[in-house]
Design a protein around this nucleic acid. Structure first.
Length: 183
DNA sequence: CGAAGGATCGTCT
DNA sequence: GACGATCCTTCGT
């Protein structure tokens, strides 16, 4: 199976967020592989989106959102969680990223359960902080290229027909935009 | 069940 | 110096 090309991410952030549903996320540590299918995403854009980290200005943290597409944007929040995003936007001069909020675990479930110290599959990777903990994604992955099959990448997956739209979670402004997408 | 509150620290003002 | 694109536990019903 091949990874999604740069071209895939070089489109409107909201469209990419929808189309990432059903795709396969893989995390490789040495020979060990963990993977799952993406089932929930959120789009965060630029100046038109008050909930986005890129809304105000470019900073040390958010700078990858302004750069090349198909790159990982990982940040630390609430003093204990990492969140994993993919840079996606139509214009080179703009900014945007898609937050991966949930996957269905497939390969390497045992390791994920160890990492999270729980058994229940339902609670294993059904939240942005949970999936980074399960897949051992940290700030070390900030800025890596997800189109290359190295330690973290996204491949082709299922065709999704029905998409549920909703408001994004945990934000103050920008609630009128239905940019949370789930299968 | 659902609601409420605590944990904990990097980032921005 | 305040707060957050969260999660988990506890407590009450």
């Amino acid at each position: 199976m091949s990874t999604l090309p740069k071209k895939f991410y070089q489109r409107d952030t909201v469209i990419v967020a929808k189309e990432l549903l059903g795709k396969k996320l893989t995390r490789k540590i040495g020979n060990y592989e963990m993977s799952g299918t993406i089932i929930e995403t959120e789009a965060y854009r630029h100046k038109d989106d008050p909930a986005s980290h890129a809304f105000r200005n470019i900073t040390d943290r958010n700078k990858v959102m302004f750069g090349e597409v198909g790159i990982a944007y990982v940040y630390f929040t609430y003093g204990m969680h990492y969140c994993f995003n993919v840079v996606a936007k139509k214009m080179k001069t703009s900014a945007g990223a898609v937050l991966i909020r949930g996957i269905v675990p497939e390969k390497g479930i045992k390791k994920m359960q160890e990492n999270r110290n729980i058994e229940n599959l339902k609670n294993l990777t059904n939240g942005p902080g949970k999936l980074t903990q399960a897949l051992e994604i940290t700030k070390e992955h900030y800025g890596i290229d997800l189109t290359k099959k190295i330690e973290l990448y996204i491949e082709e997956g299922l065709e999704i027909k029905k998409i549920k739209k909703s408001t994004r979670i945990g934000i103050k402004d920008g609630k009128e935009m239905l940019w949370n997408f789930q299968i």
